[in-house]
Amino acid sequence: MGDTAQTTLKTLPLQDLHEAAKARFGGFAGWNMPITYPLGVMKEHLHVREQAGLFDISHMRVIEISGDDAAKLLAEACPLDPLSIPMNQSKYTFLLNENAGVEDDLIVTRLGENRFMIVANAGNADADIAHLNKVAAGKSVTVNPLDRVLLALQGPAAADVAAKAGVPGGELTFMTGIEPKADWFVTRSGYTGEDGFEIALPEKDARDLLAKLFADERVQWIGLAARDSLRLEAGLCLHGQDITPEINPVDAGLLWAVPKPVRETAGFIGAKAFLEKLAAGAKAKRVGLKPEGRQPVRADVELFDADGNKIGRVTSGGFGPSAGHPVAMGYVTPEFAAVGSRVFADIRGNLVPLDVHSLPFTPHHYHKG
C-alpha cells in the first residue's frame, strides 16, 4: 500500500455547529478542527481578551483515575504527590520518560479520596491512556477515558456569561474543579491567560448549554489559530513544540511544577534523569523572544549570536494582537537567557534581530479569589 493512504481526521461531536458557524477547518493532532471563524483570527483573539470566547476543545481527553491505588498510580506516572493535593484542587504536571523528557503535560484535579480527573492533550491521549494502563498493572485502580464534549469559555466576561447561562462553578478560583451534576466536570482554568472555565459534559447537555451561552451577545466561537496566539502571548507551552519527549522540565523552566518533596522521594518515572539534569543545570533555557519589526518569526527557525554561532531555536512564533508586536518562544544557551539579550534568527539567509523578553507578553488575569 505504501504511504499513499490518506489518514482520516476525527471529527468533533459538534462538527455540525461549527459548519453552521462557517468555520474554516484544518487538521490538528489527528482531528478536523475549526481554525478560524468569519470574525478572523485577529478579532477572535481580541474578543477573548475583551469579552468572552468559546472554544470547542473536545479533541482533548478527559480521563478518570479511581480506586484504592489511584494516588499510587499518579505518583509513579507523574512527578506529583497526589495525596497532598487538596480536594477540588487542580495541578499542572507531566508524564515523563526515563530520560525526563516530557511525553505530555496534563492537568490533574482531585475529586475524591481516591479519585482524580486528568485532561490530556489530543495528539498524546491514546499513548497516555496506554501508558497509564501499563503503570496501573497490579494496582487496584481503573483508568477510564470519558466520552465528553469539552468546552472552554475564556475572557473577562466569562464568569458573568457562565452565571447567566446557569453554569455551576462561579465560586471556583483559578485551578480548582468540581463535578456539579452527573457527568459534568467544571474547572476554572484555560489556555489563554484570561479568567474562564473548562466544562466537560455529555453532548446533549453541551448542545443545550451552547444555546444559552450564544443567547449572550458577548460570546463568540474562537478557533484554534487564536487559541495559539492567546497561549503564546500568555507564555504557555504547546506540547510537541515548546515541550517534547526530548525536552525536560529543567530546560523548559517548569521546575515549579515538580514539588521539592516529590524530588526528594524520587518515586516517579524519569526521576533519576530528572535529578541529574537538575544538578547539572539547564543546557538550554526556554525564553520569550521579541523580533525587531513587524515580521513574525516562526517555529523551527535557528538562532545565532552576533558572531554567527548557533545558540538555539524558536519553538513557537507568530503575531501577538494584544501585545501589538510579533511574539515567540524558544530555547537559547544559558548565557543568552537574560532578559534584554540580543540574538539573531536566520530567515531565508537574512539575520533578523530578536530581544529576549520576559514571559508572559501580556499579563495573566486569572481569578484567584
Rank of each mutant, 00 (worst) to 15 (best):
V48K: 01
G317E: 05
A328D: 03
D147G: 05
A130G: 04
D300Q: 14
Q220H: 15
I311S: 03
P202E: 12
L303E: 02
T333N: 03
F344D: 02
E335T: 09
F268C: 02
G101P: 09
L150Y: 10
H325S: 14
G101D: 01
L359G: 05
N133H: 12
E203K: 13
V262C: 06
K10I: 00
V102I: 15
Q6R: 13
A211P: 03
K290H: 14
G235T: 04
V186I: 15
E292T: 14
K212P: 03
A71N: 03
S58W: 05
L254A: 12
K22T: 08
G223H: 06
V327N: 00
P202R: 07
H45W: 08
R110D: 11
I311Q: 09
I129E: 01
K91A: 13
K164Y: 00
A299Q: 12
P79Y: 09
V149T: 12
A338V: 07
S341C: 07
L289P: 02
G317V: 00
E203S: 06
Q6L: 13
G2M: 08
L46Q: 12
A225F: 05
K134I: 04
T187Y: 00
L275H: 03
A338I: 00
E98L: 11
G349A: 07
A328V: 04
P326D: 10
M42W: 10
I199V: 13
R294W: 04
A52K: 02
H367L: 15
V149G: 00
R348D: 14
A271D: 08
G30F: 01
N88K: 12
S84A: 15
G235M: 04
D355C: 03
N97V: 07
L238I: 11
A273H: 04
T187I: 13
D208C: 08
V167A: 07
R207E: 14
I178V: 15
N133R: 15
L151C: 04
G281N: 05
S229C: 05
G349V: 09
N97I: 05
I63D: 07
T93Q: 03
T4R: 11
K272T: 14
P86A: 13
A299R: 13
R313G: 13
T173K: 14
V102E: 12
G235R: 06
A299S: 13
R294I: 09
I243Q: 00
I243F: 04
L12F: 09
S316I: 04
R298V: 13
G312T: 09
